[in-house]
Lab assay of single mutants.
Amino acid sequence: SISSRVKSKRIQLGLNQAELAQKVGTTQQSIEQLENGKTKRPRFLPELASALGVSVDWLLN
């Protein structure tokens, strides 16, 4: 799922939720909701993929 991929990649990069949120241009709460499965397809998906160094396709599939 996107939530597990985001969380595992974030941890692999040594980032906390607030640091990832800053790179993406969103809030820590938005990252938390995404990782908890409350958000399925965030509006900041391209920025998120870029910050994590992955493709949008990788996040979604």
Results as ranks from 00 to 15, higher is better:
L48G: 00
V54G: 03
Q29N: 11
L15V: 05
A21E: 01
P42M: 08
T26L: 08
V56Q: 09
Q17C: 10
S4E: 15
K9S: 06
K23Y: 08
T27R: 06
R43C: 11
A49E: 00
P42A: 08
Q33G: 08
L45S: 03
G25A: 04
L48T: 01
N36T: 12
I11T: 10
S3I: 05
Q22L: 13
T39P: 08
R43Q: 14
L13F: 05
T26Y: 04
V6E: 02
K40W: 13
Q33F: 13
L45T: 04
V6N: 01
V24A: 10
K40S: 12
L15R: 02
G14V: 03
E19P: 01
N16M: 07
L34R: 08
T26W: 05
L59K: 00
L15I: 09
R41G: 07
L45K: 00
A21W: 02
L60S: 07
G14R: 08
G37Q: 05
Q12K: 08
L34W: 03
K7Y: 10
K23I: 14
V6H: 02
S50A: 15
A49G: 04
I31G: 00
T26E: 07
L34D: 01
K23P: 00
G14S: 07
K7S: 08
S50Y: 13
G25E: 04
V54E: 05
L52K: 00
Q28W: 12
E47D: 10
D57N: 11
S30W: 15
K38Y: 14
R5F: 07
E19R: 04
T27Y: 04
K23H: 07
S1M: 10
T26V: 15
L59H: 00
P42I: 14
N36C: 09
L20A: 01
K40Q: 13
I2W: 07
W58V: 03
L45G: 03
G37K: 05
L34H: 01
R5Q: 06
Q28I: 15
Q12G: 08
L20N: 01
E35Q: 02
T39N: 14
P42W: 13
G25T: 03
S50H: 13
K38M: 14
S30H: 13
A18T: 11
I31E: 01
R41I: 12
F44K: 06
E47F: 07
K40H: 15
T27Q: 05
F44E: 04
S3G: 15
Q12R: 09
P46W: 11
V24S: 07
L45F: 06
S55W: 04
R5N: 07
W58D: 04
A49K: 00
E47L: 10
K7A: 10
N61L: 09
P46H: 14
I31M: 04
A51S: 06
L52M: 05
R10S: 04
V24W: 03
N16W: 03
A49Y: 00
S8K: 15
T39W: 12
S1L: 11
N16G: 11
L13D: 03
I11R: 09
T26C: 14
L20M: 03
N36M: 12
K23M: 15
S8N: 13
R5Y: 05
V24K: 01
S50W: 13
G14F: 04
E35D: 01
V24C: 13
S50D: 12
S3F: 06
A21C: 03
S50M: 14
L20G: 00
R41A: 11
R10F: 01
L13N: 05
V6I: 09
A51D: 02
L20H: 00
Q33A: 15
Q28C: 09
K23G: 04
S4M: 13
I11G: 06
A51F: 08
V56Y: 07
S55Q: 07
T27W: 04
T26H: 04
K40V: 13
S50N: 14
S3N: 07
T39V: 15
S30E: 15
G14D: 05
G53T: 04
T39L: 15
W58A: 03
R10L: 02
I2N: 02
L60W: 08
R5K: 12
I2A: 04
N36L: 12
G37W: 04
I11D: 07
R5H: 04
G53R: 09
S30A: 15
R41K: 11
I31W: 00
N16H: 07
L15Y: 11
L13M: 11
S4V: 13
S8L: 14
N16P: 04
V6A: 09
I31H: 02
E47S: 10
Q12F: 09
R43Y: 14
L15A: 01
E35W: 02
T27L: 06
K9C: 10
K9L: 14
N36I: 09
S55G: 07
K7P: 02
Q12D: 09
T26G: 04
N16T: 15
Q17I: 14
Q29Y: 14
Q12H: 09
A21F: 00
K23E: 07
V6F: 02
N16E: 09
Q12W: 09
F44H: 06
F44M: 06
L59M: 04
R43S: 15
Q33H: 12
V54Y: 02
E35C: 02
S55P: 09
Q29G: 10
D57F: 11
R43F: 12
P42E: 04
G25F: 05
L34T: 03
N61S: 14
V24H: 03
